[in-house]
């Protein structure tokens, strides 16, 4: 029996398996290049249309919202008087959380609106309580959100009282840590944390959380454990805020 004949026989026997295997892997790679667009839209289709439950917002919250709106209007008028330049939010969309992270090593959520409602990658995600994360990528009806508790999430923040700056880094466990820039920041437990005005990724002044404890001996600068205001583990609906910034996603 010649070598050629052996090869031919081997090929005849395994040809369907080889072609099937190569085909399946090629299809998977193709789906991956489209961020599994098809899979996510199918998943969203099965979930059905749900609207955010606005009954959860109680009267106290509505009262506070009215106050905030009033203050925002005043603030805007004052800023106009000062010729203050600021980008206005392009769109705000309320939507439900349709899924959690599809991998153990990531802290993400899937939400039920996407490019169909004008959401773009980099949009800021808020929940009752404050900052939650930002949009990684979108399909027509879903967006994938990187939560601030993910270890690859880094948010420029500051202490509201003393303007001490730092970076809020996720720990992968539902906790976040504030790494200060300064060797001796003016901070104490209970201080509130907001997004920094120097951040290009997030609008300034969004509520994030409050300082729980401070580790003064951390190197190279002190670190603080921050308790987030938003209930990250139990989110039911969120606000997507098309900030219009073009952030470099996941800056190293």
């Amino acid at each position: 029996m010649t070598r050629f004949e052996l090869l031919r026989r081997w090929w005849q026997r395994y040809t369907s398996q080889i072609l099937g295997g190569v085909g399946v892997v090629a299809l998977a790679v193709y789906l991956q290049t489209t961020q599994a667009w098809v899979l996510r839209e199918l998943y969203r289709g099965l979930q059905g249309g749900r609207v955010p439950d606005t009954r959860l917002t109680d009267s106290r919250l509505q009262e506070l919202e009215t106050q905030v709106q009033e203050l925002q209007i005043q603030n805007r008028q004052l800023q106009q008087l000062l010729n203050y330049q600021q980008k206005m939010p392009l769109a705000t969309v309320a939507t439900t959380v349709v899924g959690r992270s599809a991998g153990h090593w990531w802290h993400q959520i899937w939400v039920g609106e996407g490019s169909g409602k004008g959401i773009t990658p980099g949009s800021v995600v808020l929940a009752p309580g404050g900052l939650v994360g930002r949009v990684l990528d979108v399909t027509p009806h879903t967006s994938r959100v990187l939560l601030v508790t993910d270890p690859s999430s880094k948010v420029g923040v500051m202490v509201n009282r003393s303007r001490a700056m730092g970076i809020l880094v996720g720990q992968g466990t539902g906790q976040t840590v504030l790494e200060f820039f300064d060797k001796n920041p003016d901070v104490k437990p209970g201080d509130t944390i907001v997004t920094s005005p120097f951040s290009t990724i997030f609008p300034a002044g969004i509520a994030v959380g409050k300082i729980e404890s401070i580790d003064w001996r951390a190197m190279p600068a002190p670190q603080a454990t921050v308790q987030l205001y938003a209930p990250i583990e139990r989110l039911e609906w969120v606000l997507l805020h098309n900030y219009g910034a073009k952030p470099a996603l996941l800056a190293p």
């Binding site: 398996q17 295997g21 399946v24 892997v25 299809l27 998977a28 790679v29 789906l31 991956q32 489209t34 961020q35 599994a36 899979l39 996510r40 992270s101 599809a102 991998g103 090593w105 990531w106 993400q108 990684l136 990528d137 990187l146 690859s152 996603l249 996941l250």
Partner: peptide
């Protein structure tokens, strides 16, 4: 081989659902 192909295929698809685009991720 069949086990390997199935695992790699599902793994690639799970990557598509989880990993952010751009850069190298596990």
């Amino acid at each position: 081989w069949q086990g390997l192909i199935a695992g790699v295929t599902l793994g690639i698809l799970q990557d598509a659902l989880v990993n952010p685009g751009g850069g190298w991720w596990p």
